[in-house]
Design a protein around this nucleic acid. Sequence first.
DNA 1: ATTATTATTGACTATTCAGTCAAAAATAAT
DNA 2: ATTATTTTTGACTGAATAGTCAATAATAAT
Lengths: 124, 124
Amino acid sequence: MGRNKKFDPTVVLHDIGWLFIKNGYNGTSLDDIVKVTGILRGSLYSTFGSKLGMFIAAFELSLHEEDPQLKWGLLLIAMLEVAPQSTKVAQMIQTWYATNQTPDIEAQIGHALLRHSGIITKGE
Amino acid sequence: MGRNKKFDPTVVLHDIGWLFIKNGYNGTSLDDIVKVTGILRGSLYSTFGSKLGMFIAAFELSLHEEDPQLKWGLLLIAMLEVAPQSTKVAQMIQTWYATNQTPDIEAQIGHALLRHSGIITKGE
DNA sequence: ATTATTATTGACTATTCAGTCAAAAATAAT
DNA sequence: ATTATTTTTGACTGAATAGTCAATAATAAT
């Protein structure tokens, strides 16, 4: 009963995820998110609860999906910016790490960060 | 002529550096910096010009010093948070990378990030 | 001792921030 | 068609933000 959402949360979370990757977590404002998604703050808050809720939902989505760019981008931001202020995010990273531990995992992370910061590109 | 500084900029930059490591760049406010250093904003601005100037000075110092914790902490923050909004910082990282490129550099970066985020500790 | 120069002080500003909420709109269920 | 329920809307709030600046204090150079 009542109306249905006008937007697809999954689509919106992709937009939000890429925005966090571009600007960082603390570097992204809610006005930025409103602008990028076209969804007004009230709707965003009623769906995701808080800015942190938006990050967590986008991060979780990225872990259950195929796009490695999105996943690595959000992982880096989660590790460096968000984990210190959210035990839930810290636990999510822990879980991911426990599941994905390989001999070259550190090199993979380092590679992702070098790519993220633009110091190396594609093949390099 | 005129009075000399009451504080040692090098000491202050260490305090600022550790604060940036703890809270991130965008997560650190000038009130935080004032509190930690005991130096009022006017003096900080007349010495370092801007918040970005404070980061750059602390980062540069860390690259010319011995403390690896400080250096790696600021490198991570520089790569993930600051480089996207400062070409100067991006160049500093480039220069550092060109000079310190080794076969295991990516693993080193990944290791530093895992440590920073508390996912691994000391020996692990 | 005077003075020109520099540093300190901290109140102030204008802007941006995350988050709220009452009203309006839409619609699923009956 | 009515109604109960949900979503949307966007103006609003109080707090925090980076940065400024005129006044004051200190002092190095003369």
